[in-house]
Each structure stands twice: as C-alpha cells, then as structure tokens.
Amino acid sequence: MNLAIRMMVLGPVQTNCFFLINEDTKEVLVIDPADHAQKIIEWMKSENLKPVAILLTHGHFDHIMGVEGIRKEYGIPVYASRDEVDVLAKPQLNVSTMMGAYLSMKADELFCDGDVLELAGMKLKVISTPGHTIGSVCFYIEEEKVLISGDTLFEASVGRTDFPTGSSRQLIESIKTRLFILPDDTSVFPGHGGTTSIGYEKLHNPFVY
C-alpha cells in the first residue's frame, strides 16, 4: 500500500485537516474535517478520491465543523472515541458556544483504546491520550511510522487543557507514557502547526517534563 498524506488548514483557528490516501485504490480517510465541507468535497473530487470514513481525534468544534457536509455527500461513517460522546453532543463541552454556534453531533462508530481500525487498506491503531479532552486519541500507523496526534502533541508544544474535560496532568501523562514510547523516527502530524517527530519532541518539547 502506497500511503500519501495531504493536509488542508481550515477554519477560524487554522486547524489541520488530514487526508490519508491509499494511492493504489484512491481510497481516502478524512481526519478532523475542520470546516468548509464543500471545499474539502471539491478537492477530493478533483483528485478522484473515494472517501471511506471520517475519523475524529476529538470533539472540539474546530475539528468537526465540516463533518456533516461530508457525511451527507458521501454517506460514509464517522468514527470517534467512546469517551468523547458527550463532548461531541454538548455545545458547552465542544466549546462551539465560544463561536456563537451550537454544534451537536453523533458518531456512527465508536472505538476504544487499542482498537485497530482497518480502513482503506490501512491499519490505524487507536491510542487513547486524555488531557486535551477526556476522549482525545491519536492514530498510529505502525507500518508507516506515522502518528496523527490531534491536539495532544504539537511541534515543541502541547494542547491546551483549560477547556471542559481537560487536564494538564492527564495530558503530560498521556504524552510521556503513550506517545514517547513510540520509535523516535515516528513522524507526527498535529492538529495545528507544523509536523515534527517523536524523537525531536522528546529532546525539545519544554512542556513535557
């Protein structure tokens, strides 16, 4: 399987939406469709891609605003953590109220820590990383040494923990015990900002102590 990773930066807080593309089949997984569903749809059509599923690292508004438009267009399932059900459903928890919106949504498929999602010819391991939200997860493709880290781990930074269900203690614990055990040459694709690697963050991230 030849994997290609593409990214769009979308929405009011510059959120990274990732596309994991199986270049052999043109199937694609959409991770965290942040906003502008129509723009995402038009791009996927221009690339002749076949969307298989939408995967969510967590339920904050800036990662889910494009979900319904894509789900409706393609009739594909949305996957999210079992621990994130309330965050997705309640505007006060997904902080969409900060934007004057009231987003509420329900995933079609719920996963748990350690589950392996076999989609579009890929195997994505679910790594539970509570801290940014209670149900935050990262997706790890071991064969490709790729980690989609959501808002848990950024380049030389970490996700904020002052929103509902957040915990700074949990976040640091998650990074140290769940992510920093991965190979140093694992490429990290965060929910905001630039890409990095596990090895770089172990040496240079000032927030993980």
Results as ranks from 00 to 15, higher is better:
Ile41Phe: 06
Val126Thr: 09
Glu27Met: 10
Met122Asn: 09
Val67Thr: 10
Lys39Ser: 09
Gly100Ser: 10
Ala101Ile: 08
Ala80Val: 02
His36Trp: 04
Asp62Thr: 11
Val28Met: 13
Asn22Phe: 14
Asp108Gly: 03
Leu119Tyr: 09
Cys112Pro: 00
Leu10Asn: 12
Leu119Pro: 11
Met122Thr: 00
Glu42Met: 03
Ser128Arg: 04
Ile64Val: 12
Ile21Pro: 15
Met99Cys: 09
Asp115Ser: 01
Leu10Ile: 13
Pro33Asp: 10
Ala34Glu: 04
Ala80Trp: 03
Val87Ile: 15
Trp43Ala: 04
Ala4Ile: 11
Leu10Val: 10
Lys90Ser: 10
Ile70Asp: 01
Met8Tyr: 13
Asp108Ala: 08
Ile41Ser: 04
Glu73Cys: 02
Leu49Gln: 04
Lys106Glu: 10
Asn22Ser: 12
Thr25Ile: 12
Asn16Pro: 12
Leu119Arg: 12
Gly75Leu: 01
Ala101Ser: 06
Asp83Pro: 00
Glu42Arg: 12
Thr57Trp: 00
Asn94Cys: 06
Lys26Phe: 12
Met98Asp: 11
Val126Asp: 03
Cys17Tyr: 06
Leu119Gly: 03
Glu118Phe: 01
Thr133Glu: 13
Lys26Leu: 13
Leu29Phe: 08
Glu84Gly: 06
Ser104Phe: 02
Gly121Pro: 14
Val85Trp: 06
Lys26His: 15
Ala107Arg: 12
Glu23Ala: 15
Ala4Cys: 11
Lys90Tyr: 07
Leu10Pro: 07
Val116Trp: 01
Ala37His: 09
Ala34Thr: 05
Glu47Gly: 06
Ala34Phe: 07
Lys106Arg: 15
Met8Ala: 14
Tyr74Asn: 08
Phe139Lys: 06
Lys26Ile: 03
Ile127Asp: 03
Ser81Glu: 11
Ile54His: 00
Tyr79Thr: 09
Val78His: 04
His132Cys: 02
Leu56Glu: 01
His60Glu: 15
Ile21Val: 15
His60Lys: 05
Lys90Phe: 14
Asp24Ala: 14
Val87Tyr: 08
Gly75Ile: 00
Asp83Leu: 05
Ser136Met: 02
Glu73Ala: 05
Pro51Gln: 05
